[in-house]
């Protein structure tokens, strides 16, 4: 399976990655090559095979419904590139 430049641009948009025209070209080539590798899977019949989503069969554990965390606003905001008045600050979001 090979993919074209438009698909590469669409995927880059979904992934929120700016890509230059040069990169569109190299991604198109490389992804096509890699996807070529994937196509061999089509030769393998898997009709009645249960998909494997986790490496080990296990069941969901659960925790008790108790509050254990205190306020760590300042600690977390400290990591932020920009913050203001107790908030993470980002460029204007236009709906």
């Amino acid at each position: 399976m090979s993919i074209n430049a438009d698909t590469v641009k669409h995927v880059a948009n979904l992934a929120r990655l700016n890509i230059s025209d040069d990169e569109v070209e190299s991604h198109t080539n490389q992804l096509s090559q890699i996807l070529g590798l994937m196509d061999q899977l089509n030769s393998l019949p898997t009709d009645n095979v249960e998909p494997m989503t986790h490496a080990v069969d296990m069941l969901m554990p659960a925790r008790e419904d108790v509050v254990v965390n205190g306020d760590s606003r300042e600690i977390l905001l400290n990591c932020a590139p920009d913050s203001e008045d107790g908030h993470f600050r980002v460029p204007k979001i236009i709906e």
């Binding site: 925790r63 606003r73 977390l76 905001l77």
Partner: peptide, 16 residues
């Protein structure tokens, strides 16, 4: 384990 409640000051009930 952060508290689930409405109306606190911004970002005061968050953790990593």
């Amino acid at each position: 384990g952060c508290p689930n409640k409405y109306g606190s000051d911004a970002n005061t009930q968050i953790c990593h």
